[in-house]
């Protein structure tokens, strides 16, 4: 029932990266051929500068609470559960419970409640007659049992306080959703949101660079895991007309999970961080950056 978009789009984006490489290689060979085949090369074509490659990390916190079913799903499940209840094999009471035990009494009471929920409030009322005293005694015994076993405690709420106070720093926010780490950076006087990223050093593998850059920007107070050595997406900013001679910039994205800990900024170039859902990311990042990453983020 969840979208499987991220996978489909992943293939697309990796194809894009492939395409990029093919084009640069092809142009290089063409220039070399032309220079050698022309007898008097009057103008040497300038070799394009080497592309500037950086590695970025899409740090994900997976859902920690189950999804809330839609109205349609709830109706569907309730209907199917009703069919199941009316068709199931008879429950072997005497195999699971001692005759006349407290546990059996409690189970019978709960079962009656569930049957009336499925088949209407008067279901099974005519079949058996239980005196009022007996019913009251059963109920008191069941309550006593529940109290002994500590079953009166409530469940944890499904909405965390981080959601109510809109704390974007908290890892507990949006428990039903995939959330991602976004950083607010200040580069050359331009304030913008982006994923943690950094340069690749000489001789370093891309996924190692991604891990190192993540720790360099977000501190080492978190336990993370880079899922794959393969990049899951690529982003190339559109080249400006006036600066066409400048090196091409390519950013490769790696997926990572956060297991424990939290981001700790050292307060230099990065001003702030936030854990955001896909829709919240769209509102913050630039248009072409969004087009580069939107397909690798989970819709839910």
């Amino acid at each position: 029932m969840l979208s499987r978009n991220p996978l489909a789009s992943c293939r697309l984006s990796t194809n894009v990266s492939l395409h990029v490489f093919h084009r640069t290689l092809a142009t290089e060979t063409v220039t070399e051929l032309s220079s050698s085949s022309i007898p008097v090369p009057s103008i040497r074509t300038k070799r394009p500068p080497r592309a500037h490659i950086s590695a970025a990390v899409i740090l994900n916190r997976s859902p920690i609470v189950t999804r809330t079913p839609t109205l349609f799903e709830r109706a569907y499940y309730a209907y199917q559960a009703r069919i199941r209840r009316s068709l199931h094999n008879p429950f072997p009471f005497d195999f699971y419970f001692k005759q006349g035990s407290l546990l059996e009494t409690r189970f019978n009471m709960e079962e009656k409640k569930r049957e009336r929920r499925a088949f209407g409030p008067n279901f099974g009322r005519d079949d058996e007659f239980v005196s009022k005293e007996k019913a009251a005694a059963d109920k008191a015994a069941a309550d006593q049992l529940a109290l002994q076993e500590g079953e009166v405690e409530d469940f944890m709420p499904r909405v965390h306080t981080a959601d109510t106070i809109r704390d974007l720093h908290s890892l507990d926010r949006k428990g039903k959703r995939n959330i991602y780490l976004l950083l607010l950076t200040n580069a050359q006087g331009k304030v913008m949101w982006r994923f943690p990223q950094g340069d690749v050093e000489k001789g370093e593998l891309l996924h190692q660079a991604a891990q190192r850059d993540l720790h360099a920007e977000c501190g080492s107070f978190m336990d993370t895991w880079i899922v794959s050595r393969n990049p899951i997406g690529v982003y190339k900013p559109a080249p400006l007309e006036s600066l066409s001679e400048e090196a091409e910039k390519i950013t490769f994205f790696f997926k990572a999970h956060i297991m424990a800990g939290q981001v700790k900024l050292d307060g230099t170039s990065i001003k702030d961080f936030a854990w955001l859902t896909k829709q919240e990311i769209e509102a913050r990042v630039q248009k072409d950056y969004w087009d580069g990453v939107k397909d690798v983020l989970s819709d839910y």
Partner: peptide
């Protein structure tokens, strides 16, 4: 479908 399929593929 929300986590493992993507990870296994990557």
């Amino acid at each position: 479908y929300s986590t493992l399929q993507d990870n296994a593929m990557y």
